[in-house]
Amino acid sequence: MKLIKTLLAATVLAGALGGAAIAQDKVTIGVSVPAADHGWTGGVNYFAQQTIDRLSKVYPDATFVFASAADAPKQIADIEDMVSTRNIDALVILPGDPDAMTSAIKQVKDAGKFVTVVDRQLSIDGVEDLYVAGDNPGLGTNTANYFKEAMPDGGNIVVLRGLPIPIDQQRVDAFMAGIEGTNIKVLDDEFANWNRDDGFKVMQDFLTRFPDIKGVWAQDDDTAVGAIEAIKQAGREDEMFIVGGAGMQQMIQRVADGDKLMPVDVSYNPAMISTAIELTTAHAVGGVPVSGRYILESTLITQENASEFLDEESPF
């Protein structure tokens, strides 16, 4: 059970903290992420903890403070506590709602801490020392490229979007730009909120409405799970293919198995949090100079390379 692991980690942390007070050259790093409200954030939480466990062994001088918050106010309170009571030296944050949290994160920066922002861009530039993110436009472009290749003569497709936040917009804009000039026609797009139940419902209604659909872009693998069930129910799995996103294990397995309905997936790896924590720790402990933007490429996962992305341990 992961909770046990968490508890263990927390105990280790508490012990390490006791030691940190004595030794001067020890560092404390805060890690703040949104609560696991869907599969992808669940992955973020998993990889963050896994990385913290691993790095705690590699760097005995580093102490990690980990917090997971259900909403923006809670997350702001978390980082305020990290600064005031845990006296962190560096903060790694994946802001649930970046606009709402920009000023709170700026205060951490102004207090002289090293700040790493993950995945979601803040509303003003220059706050963070380090920005680590997946390539959202890249996800859209990669997907568009696949659609062009799979549908050389064009055809009708539908789009199941995520939540109405900037990431979704970046992906959709890049996708639309990618298919511009082809005969691929987007019949309609609706929000499915990166969620299985909504994916099912929206897809059911698209199937009712459009007799001819050749392709479905679900953008997220959870949404795709729901959409696939709707397509199966309608008995139309031979008419179309569906492309998800994020790289959920269950979906990569389908790709690896050569599922016709789900020929490819596009990675948007929650493990980006690991990269961010690693880079930040290397800087804080070893003084390795890191700054700027690290964009983790979004890769097309096909039957050929699927095995590289399979990870027995991953809950996502």
């Binding site: 059970m1 909770l3 696991a36 599969g39 669940g42 939480n45 998993y46 809950p315």
Partner: peptide
Amino acid sequence: VTFLADGGTLS
């Protein structure tokens, strides 16, 4: 339910 699902999805 979050606890039972380990933060992810129970299938």
